[in-house]
């Protein structure tokens, strides 16, 4: 069975071809002025609906003495403020601790002496090239 008449391969190439065609067709469509106008009109409607529903929900929640989305968001913001202050305190403490220990603990780890393989190879060649010279000097 050759690739040309293998049904699985035929199916795969058809899928790829369709993908390319659909993508290119829709991209052409999406670049049109009509597409932009229609999409944004629909978005505007969605936003208006969202605002209207949001307003009604807030009033209903108020009626039942329940917190609205804004109330929860406000609480979240306050918590975030506390978190920010804690982070600041934590940072100050870490800096103080690091200063006390001379920052040595933070700088432990492998030595920062690595050279790129090309440079390392060049260095090695230079060394080996220099060696015989030294030997001949010693010999003389």
């Amino acid at each position: 069975m050759t690739k040309a008449n293998d049904p699985a391969d035929l199916w795969r190439s058809w899928v790829s071809k369709m993908e390319r065609e659909i993508d290119s067709m829709s991209q052409k469509l999406m670049k049109t002025d009509e597409f932009a106008r229609t999409t944004h009109t629909l978005n505007d409607i969605r936003m208006s609906l969202r605002d209207a529903v949001g307003g009604v929900s807030t009033k209903n929640l108020e009626l039942f003495h329940m917190p609205s989305k804004e109330d929860i968001t406000d609480l979240g913001d306050r918590l975030a403020g506390i978190e920010r202050r804690l982070t600041m305190i934590e940072r100050i403490l870490t800096t103080l601790a690091s200063e006390k220990s001379g920052g040595a603990a933070a700088r432990s780890g492998p030595p920062r002496t690595k050279v790129p393989p090309k440079k390392a190879a060049k260095k090695a060649t230079k060394k080996t090239a220099a060696k015989p010279k030294k030997q001949s000097k010693d010999a003389s």
């Binding site: 991209q27 999406m30 670049k31 049109t32 002025d33 597409f35 932009a36 106008r37 999409t39 944004h40 009109t41 978005n43």
Partner: peptide
Amino acid sequence: LFQSFSHKKYF
């Protein structure tokens, strides 16, 4: 395409 999605005239 991002230009189209954020069309200045409509977005």
